[in-house]
């Protein structure tokens, strides 16, 4: 366990406390699962240049369909369609629009936004889905603005 970039006395205090941690698990997943996974968050330094993409590892899965849902505070969940347009989702997975993202090797990139997000409430949550072998696998990550 390390404390990154802190003053000495704080480092020592936390290092002692953290010394009791026996083991640690990976922080963020890179794959989607049927139970859902937590992916690494994205931090925007400039919401005006809101380019957001997320790459995941397929681990041998072949996606038959890919889906993407975004939530802002107070706004009903929005699903992305193949044209990149967001529209309300009724929360029924059968009604999710297929975005048609295609993998490159064992990696699949979801294109979330490429637009000015200055007027949006942060943080937001992005949930990614794909269907493979009759199963719907998903994972989510949060998008925050630097503060």
């Amino acid at each position: 366990m390390r404390v990154v970039g802190l003053s000495g006395n704080i480092k020592i205090g936390f290092a002692i406390a953290m010394g009791l941690v026996a083991c640690a698990l990976p922080v963020y997943a890179q794959q989607l699962t049927v139970a859902g996974t937590q992916l690494a968050p994205v931090v925007l330094s400039s919401p005006a240049a809101g380019l957001i993409e997320k790459q995941i590892v397929m681990a041998g899965d072949v996606a038959q369909a890919t889906h993407l849902v975004v939530q802002f505070a107070g706004v009903p969940a929005l699903m992305r369609d193949r044209q990149g347009v967001y529209q309300p989702w009724d929360l029924d997975p059968a009604h999710l629009a297929d975005n048609g993202f295609t993998p490159s090797g064992d990696q699949l990139t979801f294109k979330v936004f490429n637009q000015d997000l200055s007027d949006k409430n942060f943080p937001m949550r992005v949930t990614l889905y794909y269907r493979a072998n009759g199963e719907l696998k998903f994972g989510y990550f949060d998008v925050m603005r630097v503060n």
Binding site: M1, R2, V3, V4, G5, L6, I10, F14, M18, V21, A24, L25, P26, V27
Partner: peptide, 11 residues
């Protein structure tokens, strides 16, 4: 506090 912990030890 900007306490940047690295419990996982991945640097």
């Amino acid at each position: 506090r900007n306490l940047n912990l690295d419990v996982t030890g991945d640097g």
